[in-house]
Design a protein around this nucleic acid. Structure first.
Lengths: 224, 224
DNA sequence: ACAAATCCGTTGGATATGCAACGATAAGCA
DNA sequence: TGCTTATCGTTGCATATCCAACGGATTTGT
């Protein structure tokens, strides 16, 4: 059930490794492969994991169960996606989520400790792996920090201004496209779609911005 | 202006290094030391940084400026705290924040690339450093993910339930203390304090929980 | 070209929230 | 002890938000 090298080299985790490094690296990491039936539990809330998961085929879901047993789906992980990577490097931190196979799935588990270990032959490959993990973790961090900073605003208008300003600065222009439709943007900001739609139009009436579908243009206050 | 080893060994970044490793490690990392006057800019929004900052003395602030020039303070960093660590490992990612000295400050800058490099003598120390950085990044990730999951809830009641349920599961008991007072909890959840206070009492009246200052007890629905 | 589906703006009414203010209680301090 | 401050609950009101529903415009699929 070993995955193809070409598949692995496209994943975030193994990105940048060469065709000939990969066998050696895998040999050194000693991954385990596991198959799961649909709805089978892969990792359980409360467990102490020290392994990074990598979805090879199928689809897995990250779910959360609260004090009263209400379940909610936090994320989907598709082939090539990692899961539990934040826990793999925090020994003693118990899982706050469960991971379940949404379809029959094949999964690779990689020991976090082995990834950081120095082994004589593969040091260079480990460095690449660690770079990839660190970069991905840093990327998620920035994305989450931005999301929190938008959601912290008290009104829908200020949430929108925070988000749009951030997009504008990222684009380096007052004119830019956003990667969401209205429903997705509302979900991202944690507000109601229709209320948000309404607020956008008010902001346009107030001369703060112009927009058309996915395209926005912010106006500096000088134009008022 | 070199910091004392005993100070460095207490920081998150150098935690776990021994007294005799540290000189060798620092030698290998080749940090630069810089002094800043009060209100002086340390890093500017838009720059491309590949260095981790470590506050040695004084205090620095992470600030953000939006499209219209409105400034907001995102965080304080005290002696021993890192900053810009998420950017140091994302080559090409431009700073979305600025870092400014809130007081006369002394700062150590460490090249992110050097931290990941393999050098013949200090591999073992590098591993420790990378472990520390990865653990810290993972910790922040989990904290941010939890915060987002609470803030995503639409009503104050559901935000509270999400947070309290999380605290209860972490404590492994339906009875637990929270590390916030009301104002801090309201800020954390992004709601108004008085409205939250009000909602807490309604929830108590509805038989969902009991509380007294920092102490809470969740009730399972069976008691209704 | 037609039907179906999606996306977006708009409206109205019930409800929740933010905000400001006040008093009671507890905690810290001279 | 007496004073000051911090914390918390409570209230009233203006406003914002959610929710459900609708129609027009655009896109997609057949």
């Amino acid at each position: 059930m070993n995955p193809s090298y070409s598949f692995l080299r496209k994943t975030l985790l193994f990105r940048g490794t060469t065709e000939d490094e990969l066998p050696q690296l895998l040999d050194c990491l000693a991954p385990t492969y596991r198959d799961f039936k649909k709805n089978e539990m892969i990792l359980r809330q409360g467990e102490d994991v020290s392994a990074v998961g990598l979805v090879l085929s199928g689809r897995v879901q990250i779910i959360e169960e609260d004090f009263w047993g209400n379940r909610s789906i936090l994320a989907d992980a598709w082939p090539g996606d990692m899961f539990a990577e934040a826990y793999a490097f925090l020994p003693g931190e118990l899982l706050r989520v469960s991971v379940v196979a949404a379809e029959p799935s094949n999964v690779m588990m990689l020991d976090g400790r082995r990834m950081l270990e120095v082994c004589s032959s593969a040091c260079r490959f480990h460095t690449r792996l660690v770079q990839n993990i660190l970069a991905e973790s840093a990327r998620k961090n920035l994305a989450l920090t931005r999301k929190v900073s938008h959601m912290s605003k008290r009104t829908t208008r200020n949430k929108l201004l925070s988000y749009l300003s951030s997009q504008s600065l990222a684009a380096g222009s007052d004119s830019f496209d956003i990667p969401f439709n209205r429903q997705q943007l509302a979900d991202y900001l944690g507000v109601d779609r229709s209320a948000m739609s309404n607020e956008l139009c008010k902001m346009r009436d107030d001369g703060l911005l112009e927009f058309e579908r996915h395209h926005f243009r912010l106006k500096s206050e000088i134009s008022i």
